[in-house]
């Protein structure tokens, strides 16, 4: 069974949709960006549910992408320091 729809890439970025599609294992997704629109095709059982799950997860992923943009420097600094300390190397 297949379900097709279109969403605005301003709300659901292609990157977030791709990340979400990797996480959801029960459906096969096909994503195509055409200008400000992303075309979504969902295949599998209950593809309409798969479509809703995809959009939910994409919002979660978008939130993480946005957070990464603001916090990645400090987060990477702390994580790198912890790993280098465990390796016995200077940062």
């Amino acid at each position: 069974m297949e379900f097709k729809s279109k969403v605005s890439s301003k709300v659901y970025s292609l990157e977030a949709l791709k990340l979400a599609s990797y996480i959801l294992e029960n459906w096969n997704y096909s994503l195509k960006e055409k200008g400000p629109i992303v075309e979504i095709s969902v295949k599998g059982n209950n593809p309409d549910i798969g479509y809703k799950e995809l959009l939910n997860e994409a919002l979660n992923q978008q939130c993480r992408i946005d957070l990464f943009k603001t916090n990645s420097k400090i987060a990477n600094l702390i994580t790198t320091k912890a790993l280098l300390s465990a390796l016995g190397e200077e940062s």
């Binding site: 957070l67 990464f68 916090n71 987060a75």
Partner: peptide, 14 residues
Amino acid sequence: SKGCAISSNLDNQP
């Protein structure tokens, strides 16, 4: 090990 360190960093958690 690296994956756990990155994913458990609270600055990475919404």
